[in-house]
Structure formats: structure tokens, C-alpha cells
Amino acid sequence: MGYMKSKITIILFIVLPVIAVIMTFITGQLEDFPATYLTTVLATSLAGALGGIMLATSITSEMNKNVYDLFLIRPVKRRNIIIAKFVAVYLCTIAAVWLSILTGIIIDAVRQVTVPQFFADQLHDSFITVFFALAITCSFGALFGVVMKSVAGSALLSLYVGNQTSSILTLVIPLISQMLELQLGITFPFDPLILSIIIGTIASVVILLLTLVIFNKKQF
């Protein structure tokens, strides 16, 4: 878990909660509007992009600097290097999201604002969905990190492709299910949350496996 001590992770742990506080101040005139809601929406939407970019840039720059040479000459399975990196960035980003939401909860507790049930239900779903959306962006981050030679290129691709793909979970599925119900009166045949979890898991695993295959074949 050495990655937790890296500068970028420490910044992440500070920046996300700070953004939550700033947003609360900016929207301070909206009395009784729960900061928890704001911070959750903000943190979950930022987390995917951040996780993917961090992973992509970190892998590309470390590969450019031949950092992995020192790992690969040891009795370590190549795939473990990428998996360890993926898990470290994924967990650190999730921890940053939690910290941010916790900040919102504390602000609400201090202001004595309660989160309405409608908001709470939405938060619950988006809070779970972000785990899987983040898994997708991080998988793309790992893929572009391994494939690309340019740090900027890997960052841009993971931001664009990763975010677009993960939005299937965060935007497309909830939107389709709501539109079907509201405009056509048809009940969406699947639970949107369960569907997001299934799609998120499958997509992440497939992309990550592809990444591992490519990394395994790479000549250093």
C-alpha cells in the first residue's frame, strides 16, 4: 500500500473534501440543501475521471522511466504489477470519495440539515454505481497506460473513453429506465442498479484482462 503515501494520493485525499466544502459555501444561500447530496454527486462524478487519469499517467510515466524493469527482474508475475497498481489506485480513489462524502455529512450535522428520503435513495444508488463506473475508468486507465507512450495521450484517452463508457452506468441506464417509465409507462425489465453492477463488472474484467495480456507480451 505504498501508493497511499504518494504525493498524488495525499493531494487527492485533501482536494476532494476541500472541493466539497467550497461547493457547500458557494451554494450556502440554498438553505437546508444537504451538503451530503452535493458532495456525493460531485465526488462520484469526479472520481471516475480522476482514477482513470491517475492510473493511466502513472503507468505510462513509470513505463517510460523503465521503473518496471526493477520489478520484472524479480520473481513477480507480470500481471501482479498491473493488478496491484489497479487495486491501489481504485482503493485510494474510493477512500477519497468516502472522505469527501463524510465531509458533507459532517457539514450537514453541524448545520443540522437532514437529507430527505428522495435524495437519500438517489445517493445510495449513485454511491454504489460509482464503484463500478470507477472500475471501468480505472481499467481503461490501465489499458491506455500500458499501450500509450505519451503521458498526455494516455490521460486524454482514459478520460474520454473511460468516462464515456462508464457513463453507461451513471447516466444511460438510469435515464433509459426513467424515460421508459415516465414517457411510455413501461417498467424497465431489469433493476437499473443490478444491471449497472453486472455491466460494470463484466466490462472492467474484460478490459483489465486485455490489459494484462498486452502487458505480458510487452518486451522491455
Binding site: 505504498g2 504518494s6 522511466k65 521503473v67 524493469d69 526493477l70 524479480r74
Partner: peptide, 24 residues
């Protein structure tokens, strides 16, 4: 190796401990 970088956020001791662990 030649032209190789470290994960520079590690301390000297931390890096060596990691390499040691990876070496089994």
C-alpha cells in the same frame, strides 16, 4: 539497469524493502 527510474515518492529504505519483498 541503465536509464531506469524509481518510484521516487518512496524513501531509500522503503524502496529496498519493497524490492526485497518482491525478491521473495
Amino acid at each position: 539497469p541503465q536509464d531506469v527510474g524509481f518510484q521516487e515518492w518512496r524513501t531509500v529504505e522503503h524502496a529496498l524493502k519493497t524490492f526485497g519483498k518482491l525478491s521473495g
